[in-house]
Structures are given as structure tokens and as C-alpha cells.
Design a protein around this nucleic acid. Structure first.
Length: 840
RNA sequence: GGGCGCGUAGCUCAGUGGAAGAGCACUCGCCUUACAAGCGAGUGGUCGCAGGUUCGAACCCUGCCGCGCCCA
């Protein structure tokens, strides 16, 4: 036991010992009921950890530690989400490279020096395989740094079970699951219009969209009616005029009754276009008649599908106008005009076409500026386009009802978060698009035979056997073929796409629990007990995981979902990356100690956004330091003899009150309410230090010993043992340090306290506190030391209360340095305490 | 536009039908043999606003205002 206990250095000391002793190692007990399994969110390693991570992962760790002390075998693996676009982007920016799939692999390629500043040097094109290798190298580095932070924070993770979402095991699980869905008809591919990000050149899913206000302008444009009369439409996207396949108005719109069923000619391009009626047209919007294009928005897709309209694609996957005009654009003048647009970006094409319309007199008035919500890919910086392409989907629309049922079975913490899930499931408007035209991800384990013309036969995919997984169809050869047949007529070709990150991370329970690879482990850990995550990814991660477990086994993946809030900066705004990076988690842990940072995190209630508050960390640091000092004080007394008993009223009352705290804290933690558990424990702890310890100090010091002294020493030790264990989930380092002063085992594997048989009078405590308070106030008012002698304390009040005070009068006199304590009955008035100080 | 949450002391937040609370900050004190990185005491509130229910409302109901988030 050190002379001056300190928090500094505890993390290094204990993180190392815990690892060596295997304190958090999972040992399968052979019994599902004895396990508590946690589906830890794999953080995206393409960024840096920020205080928000520290916040929410601490919440999970508190529950993990509590359940472990409750006797559960806690299954608590960590994963790293390293696959997917965020990693690609990080690698591109970090090394200044770009993946060029047509380039051959360079076996001698060495990772370039990291880019110092943007624009320092040109971007280097490298082969897909070299690019993937760079991704693997950089994520390995990032993962190491993440693990260090987590260990320092004191997460009680079993690090021997760490997985990554790009690792072999995850790929195997992901591909196995995909093949099964494919065989069951739950996964399918289709040529369909999909939302497309032209910057990243990939399809994106509904869950990855966000609406952003985007500046644009209404253009009033004349189409030409049968008699040459102008039919005006209003559009924000005049560059899509060559893609126009119909004009559409509401069936009840009187203005256009005469035109329905007829045709008009498009300006500039001179294409004959039908005028049709459809209820999705909004009479109030613009001119009430809209041009339907391939594809301007999701309504265009709906019209195209329902009215069986032709396709006139003009925007390519790079966001530029295609070189060749679409079918139907036959007019020579029109083709000439189109040629001036070919190759231009959407923005440029719009400017040119506006100039043409102005020239031809088909632009009515000037464009009117507007701001309207436009769909963006959440990671993208250009509006999404809609392009038709072949993509993989997982069925979800067909399962909406059962998904809602599963949502109702799940225990949500806090419960109101369920509404977000329900909203999302009810609002699904298509199946889940899982293919991405990217490089660093889990490949689709599929090849296609090539026909005589060298065209892939998408309807006859070649599938690997499950035991061959994981495979990469771009380098592995399908069964029955030789590698030299790749890409040749009559040969084969691999599916070029990779799965979206969520398509793999929606399987974290299966990946972590050993689905199809470790049946024993799986039986003891799945369905998991707890899924902690942030509330903003209910529509992605939570939803997708529920879907996959349903499709695979008609089960929920876990019993409880716990949703953490966000960290807000002091201005109540969501903590931005730049701000979060000003103070890195490591800096915080160094400055305040892990226990202090955890204390701050533990004060953020489940689901509630919480302010970043270094003040709370200071308080946490104070609490942890106090715990060490109080422990040192209690353990400084001789150990009570074997036959010692708590005989004194104050000791018994204190232990009884502590039992209540144990009950309340246990109940709260069982319900994942770590904040109220901490609040109750903490409140008691300060009472223990400030009042109880002060009151029994003299009695405990008494070198003559005796039953009353033994009672105090025993009560102090008993309470300390309980308090250290109650605080261990929150302050694992200081609790472990103090515990180690008188135990050989770890506090984190010792049993969670249970209420004892202590019987005590709760009134004793409140009367003790109010009496000693009155004495202190008298001294404080007189600006005297707390040790100043008191000539007399006169307590006047009801006999019952006086009798209670009588039982603790010795402690009160000793603590207050009181010469005489006088008790005067007065049953007609409330308790009154008069204090007379001795002369200075 | 729909849904969810929030609004209590200068700040961060507890309290969900029975006497308005804690910590921080601030003020005034105290070397007190665990802790001065400590301890004691004090100042501070129209519980967003307006109605309603009730013997009694910060708490339940209705409406409004403000903030945030999710979804269209």
C-alpha cells in the first residue's frame, strides 16, 4: 500500500497484468444460460477514434464488467470494420494513390510515403491487387492504434477473439451466408435503375442516402404541341431534355385533358414524346405537367416502370453525358445539338443546353433560383444520379411484417428507440442493394460462363462449394474451368463487384459466435445478449443484422439492443470531427486517467446525447483518487479478530443503507441503467467518506480495542469491500488497485455484492448526519477549525428521535469534539440542535 | 409535412403525484495524524408558457413556444 496513492500509471500497470492473467478471457462454460454475449460494434478503422467512441464503448464495458462479476462468462470480442469505401478513401488520401483495375499487379510495389499535404504531388495509379494490399497494410496499422486506446480505456475485451470485416473468417461467413440466400431465393440480381454516386462510381443503398438542400433553378421550357403551340414544363434539370420519354400530368388536371394520348416534340432534339396521365404528377408543382426522363428522380423511375416507357439514357456512370445519343433521337439537327453536349459534365451540359434553349426561343423567361432537398450519398459530394445497371439485392420488402414482429420482440434501451426502427421498416421502398462497384470489400463468390460471343450469362452463375470459401472470383478459377479460359468466349468471368460493408457487418453475431465454423461456441453465444450501438445506425446496422438473422434462422440476433447517444460539443452541436480531433482520446486518458474519462461517459444516460465536459472528468478523477485514499484509510486499521461483530447502531445502520444501495444498483445495472446505478453508489460513497468515516474515526483508532472498536473496523472493511466491487465496473483501475492491497485475486472476477443480513435503523443515519452538520455549521459560522472544542450540544425534540441519537452519542461527541451532549424531550416541536462552542 | 426526444440553479444534470435536489462554478472559512489534487459552510430556481385533472402537479392531460434528432 503506497504512502500517497495515485491514479497515474495504474492503467499501464493493470492493463498489462490483466492481459497476462487472462482476467477477461472467455471460457465457454458449456451452458448458454451462464454466458453473457456482446455484439460489440466494430469501429471503422479508416478514421481515428474520437471521444464519441470512448463514450459509448465505456457504456458497454460497464455492463460487461457487471455481468462478469454476477458470475456470467462474458463473451466480449472486438472487431474492426476495415472493409469498404471509407478505407479506400483513407488509403487514397493517405498515400496519394488511385486504384486502376486495368493495371497489372506490380509485385515489387512499395507503399509510397504518406502524403504530407493535399496537392503535394500527383496521384499515382496502381493495380487493384496493389491497392488492396495497401488497404490491408494501413488498416493493420490503424487497428493496432485502436487496440492501444481501448486497452488504455480499460475495455474488458477478450483480445484473443478479435476479428476484422475484411479478414478470411469474415469473408467466409459473408460469402457462405450470401450463397445460402442466393439458393433460397432471398438474394438475386437484377438490371434495374439504382441510385448512383458519380464521384465514387458505385451504386448506393437507400439507407445511405441523405437529403441535402441544394441550389438549383426552375427553367420554364416549351415543348411543341401538334399545332406548333408551346406546352410549357418547368424543370430544374434541363440537361435531361434529350432523355425525356414522356410528359406527364395528373389525370384530373383540366389544363391537359386535350393533350393526353397525343404527342409533343421536344425542343432542340425534336423527339416525338407522348403526353400521359398519372396520379403521381403534382398539379401544384411547377406547370403541373412534368417531363419524365431516364432518370431524373425516383418518380421518373416509377412512371417508367408503371407506364412501360422506353429508356433514353444520357448520363454515364462518371456523371458525364454519354458519347452516343439515345435511341429515338434521330433528327439530324437534334443529333448535332447532342454532339455538343457529349462528354460534358452535368453542370456544363446544363449551361450549354440553356444557351441552346435561349437561342431557339424555347426558354420562357429566365431561370428562377430555388433551393430544394436533393438526395446525396451520405459520403458523397455530388447529387446522386439514377442509372440502370445490374446489381445484387437481398429481399427485404417481402419481409416487412416479420421484421416488425422481430422489432417488437427485441428489448430496446431506451424503449423509445424502437420507433425509429419501425419507421424505417415501414418506409422501405425497395430491396436492399448490396453490390458496390468498388475494390476493397468481400467479393461476390460468383462466376459467369461466357457464351460464344464472349458475353456473360448472368442467368447461369457458377457457384463455388461452401468448403472452398472464401474465394475471389477475380483470381480463383471456378470448378470445371482452367484459368486460361478467363475472359474468353466459352470460358468464364468473375463477378467484378464487392459487397457493401453492411452486407458483411450485418453478420457480426455470426462472425463472432462461430456460425458454421464452431457449433459449440455458437450454441453457447447465439442469439447474443446485447447489441450496443449508436442510434444513428438503427436503419443500417441494426436493421440489416435483424434481417440477416431472420433470413438465416428466423430468429433475433440478440435479446437487448442498447442505443448510445452522441457527444455534443459545448454549443450543443454534434461534435464534429475537427473538434473531436483537437482532443484525442489518448490525450484525455493521459490527462484525466481512464477512470476519470469513464466516469464522464458513465454519466451519459442510455440514448441521451451528452455534452463533452472535462469538468465531469475532473470530478471522476476526484472520485477515483478518493477511492484510493479511503481504501488506504480503512486498510490502515488492524484487521478485526475472527469473532468481531458489528454491534454499534451507527455501524449497523450504515451497512443496512449500503445493502439498499446494492439492491438498487443491481436492479439498475440489470436494466442497463448504468447511470442511475453509479449515481446511487456515488452518493453513498460520499456519505461514507464525509459522515460515517468521520463519525467512527475515533472509535476505530482506539488502541485499547474492545467490541465497539472492533465493530467499527469490521464495518469499515465490510463496506469497503462492497464499495470497491460496486465501483469496479465504472472505475476499474482504482478499484483494482485498492482491491489488490488486501486481495490476491482481481476485483473484476470477484462476486458482485449481494445484500447482507444487516439490520439497522435508517433514521440513525439521517440523525447522525444532521447533528454533525449542525455542529460543523456552528464552527464554520464562527470561522473556527473543525477540531474546535464544543462546550455543549443541546438537542431538543421528540423522544423517539432523542432515543436514536442517544445510541450514537459517543460517536457524535468524538467527531464533533463535544464536551457535553444534552438531550431535551419536546414532543410538540421538530428537532432542534443548539451548539455552544467553547471559547477560543 | 409526419414521428421521437428534450426544456428544472450561471453550467451539466437528477427528481415522473405528497416539503424543489446534486455536482461544478461563485462567496466565506478550515493545516482536520486517509486525502489541501483535501475538508466545512453559504449564496443561487415563476421547474419553457397557458389552460385542465386532483385535497395536492416539476411530474398526469390539452394547446402553444423553443431546441435537437429521425423520416418524407
Amino acid at each position: 500500500m503506497p504512502d500517497r496513492p495515485s491514479l497515474d500509471g495504474l492503467d499501464a500497470k493493470w492493463a498489462d497484468r490483466w492481459e497476462r492473467a487472462g482476467v477477461y478471457r472467455f471460457h465457454a462454460p458449456g451452458d448458454r444460460a451462464a454466458v453473457f454475449s456482446i455484439d460489440t460494434p466494430p469501429p471503422t478503422v479508416s478514421g481515428s477514434l474520437h471521444v464519441g467512441h470512448v463514450f459509448s464503448y465505456t457504456h458497454t464495458d460497464i455492463i460487461a464488467r457487471f455481468q462478469r462479476m454476477r458470475g456470467k462468462h462474458v463473451f466480449y470480442p472486438m472487431g474492426w470494420d476495415d472493409n469498404g469505401l471509407p478505407t479506400e478513401r483513407r488509403v487514397q488520401n493517405y498515400y496519394g494513390v488511385r486504384c486502376e483495375p486495368s493495371k497489372p499487379y506490380d509485385p515489387d510495389f512499395r507503399a509510397p510515403e504518406p502524403v504530407g499535404k493535399k496537392g503535394d504531388r500527383g496521384v499515382q495509379s496502381i493495380s487493384r491487387r496493389n491497392f488492396v494490399e495497401l488497404c490491408e497494410q494501413l488498416t493493420a496499422q490503424d487497428e493496432k492504434a485502436f487496440e492501444e486506446t481501448w486497452r488504455k480505456l480499460g475495455l474488458s475485451v477478450d483480445w484473443s477473439m478479435t476479428y476484422t470485416t475484411i479478414g478470411r473468417h469474415a469473408q467466409r461467413v459473408s460469402q457462405t451466408s450470401f450463397l445460402r440466400l442466393l439458393r433460397a431465393g432471398e438474394a438475386y440480381q437484377a438490371e434495374a435503375p439504382v441510385l448512383w454516386d458519380v464521384g465514387f462510381r458505385t451504386a448506393v443503398a437507400q439507407a445511405e442516402l441523405e437529403d441535402r438542400d441544394h441550389a438549383g433553378a426552375w427553367h420554364r421550357v416549351a415543348f411543341h404541341g401538334p399545332g406548333g403551340q408551346p406546352i410549357h414544363i418547368e424543370t430544374t434539370r434541363p440537361e435531361l431534355i434529350p432523355a425525356c420519354v414522356a410528359l406527364i400530368a395528373h389525370p384530373d388536371d383540366e389544363r391537359y385533358q386535350g393533350l393526353f394520348g397525343g404527342t409533343v416534340r421536344s425542343p432542340i432534339f425534336g423527339v416525338e414524346i407522348p403526353v400521359l396521365a398519372h396520379p403521381a404528377a403534382e398539379p401544384e408543382r411547377g406547370a403541373g405537367i412534368a417531363m419524365c426522363c431516364t432518370f431524373g428522380d425516383l418518380t421518373d423511375v416509377q412512371w417508367w416502370r408503371e407506364l412501360k416507357l422506353p429508356t433514353r439514357t444520357v448520363i454515364g456512370r462518371d456523371g458525364r453525358i454519354l458519347a452516343d445519343p439515345p435511341s429515338g433521337l434521330d433528327d439530324p439537327e437534334g443529333r448535332k445539338a447532342y454532339a455538343e453536349l457529349a462528354g460534358a459534365t452535368v453542370h456544363t451540359a446544363r449551361e450549354r443546353i440553356v444557351a441552346m434553349l435561349r437561342e431557339s426561343g424555347d426558354l420562357d423567361g429566365e431561370p428562377r433560383k430555388t433551393v430544394r432537398p436533393v438526395k446525396f450519398y451520405e459520403k458523397g459530394d455530388k447529387p446522386l444520379e439514377i442509372v440502370s445497371s445490374r446489381q445484387w439485392f437481398i429481399r427485404s420488402i417481402a419481409h416487412q411484417d416479420v421484421l416488425l414482429e422481430r422489432g417488437a420482440e427485441l428489448n430496446w434501451h431506451p424503449s423509445y428507440m424502437k420507433a425509429r426502427y419501425d419507421d424505417w421498416v415501414r418506409g422501405l421502398n425497395g430491396d436492399w442493394l448490396i453490390s458496390r462497384q468498388r475494390f476493397f470489400g468481400v467479393p461476390f463468390p460468383v462466376w459467369y460462363p461466357l457464351d460464344e460471343a464472349g458475353e456473360p450469362r448472368y442467368d447461369a452463375p457458377i457457384l463455388p462449394s461452401e468448403d472452398a470459401l472464401p474465394i475471389d472470383p477475380s483470381s480463383d478459377t471456378p470448378p470445371g474451368y482452367a484459368e486460361d479460359q478467363r475472359g474468353r468466349p466459352g470460358g468464364f468471368v468473375g463477378d467484378p463487384d464487392v459487397m457493401d460493408t453492411w452486407a458483411t457487418s450485418s453478420l457480426t453475431p455470426q462472425i463472432a459466435c462461430g456460425w458454421e465454423t464452431d457449433p459449440e461456441l455458437y450454441a453457447q453465444t447465439f442469439p447474443m445478449d446485447m447489441r450496443p450501438q449508436a442510434h444513428d445506425i438503427i436503419r443500417t446496422w441494426l436493421f440489416a443484422t435483424v434481417l440477416r438473422a431472420e433470413l438465416d434462422g428466423h430468429t433475433l440476433p440478440w435479446r437487448h439492443a442498447t442505443l448510445s447517444g452522441w457527444i455534443l460539443d459545448p454549443d450543443r452541436k454534434k461534435m464534429s470531427k475537427s473538434k473531436g480531433n483537437v482532443v484525442t482520446p489518448i490525450d484525455l486518458l493521459e490527462q484525466f486517467s481512464p477512470d476519470a474519462v469513464r466516469y464522464w461517459a458513465a454519466n451519459g444516460r442510455p440514448g441521451t446525447d451528452t455534452a463533452f465536459d472535462q469538468g465531469q472528468m475532473k470530478i471522476g478523477r476526484r472520485l477515483a483518487t478518493k477511492l484510493l485514499n479511503a481504501s488506504k484509510f480503512v486498510l490502515g486499521f488492524p484487521r478485526p479478530a475472527g469473532g468481531a461483530a458489528c454491534t454499534e447502531a451507527l455501524d449497523r445502520a450504515m451497512l443496512a443503507a449500503l445493502d439498499d444501495v446494492v439492491r438498487q444498483a443491481t436492479e439498475a445495472l440489470e436494466a442497463f441503467e448504468y447511470t442511475s446505478a453509479l449515481e446511487r453508489i456515488e452518493r453513498f460513497f460520499w456519505f461514507f467518506c464525509d459522515d460515517y468515516v468521520e463519525l467512527v474515526k475515533q472509535r476505530a483508532y482506539d488502541e485499547a480495542g474492545g467490541p465497539a472498536t472492533e465493530s467499527a473496523r469490521l464495518a469499515l472493511r465490510t463496506a469497503l469491500s462492497t464499495l470497491l466491487r460496486l465501483l469496479a465496473p465504472f472505475l476499474p483501475y482504482s478499484a483494482e488497485e485498492a482491491w489488490s492491497w488486501w486481495h490476491d485475486d482481481s476485483v473484476h472476477t470477484s462476486p458482485w455484492p449481494t445484500p447482507g443480513a444487516a439490520e439497522g435503523d435508517a433514521r440513525v443515519i439521517s440523525l447522525a448526519s444532521s447533528t454533525i452538520s449542525a455542529i460543523r455549521k456552528a464552527k464554520s459560522d464562527a470561522k473556527r477549525s473543525m477540531r474546535a472544542p464544543v462546550e455543549s450540544v443541546r438537542v431538543v425534540g421528540p423522544r423517539g428521535e432523542l432515543r436514536t441519537i442517544e445510541t450514537i452519542s459517543g460517536d457524535l461527541r468524538a467527531a464533533g469534539n463535544v464536551e457535553s451532549l444534552e438531550l431535551t424531550p419536546d414532543d410538540d416541536h421538530e428537532l432542534r440542535i443548539e451548539v455552544s462552542l467553547a471559547d477560543a
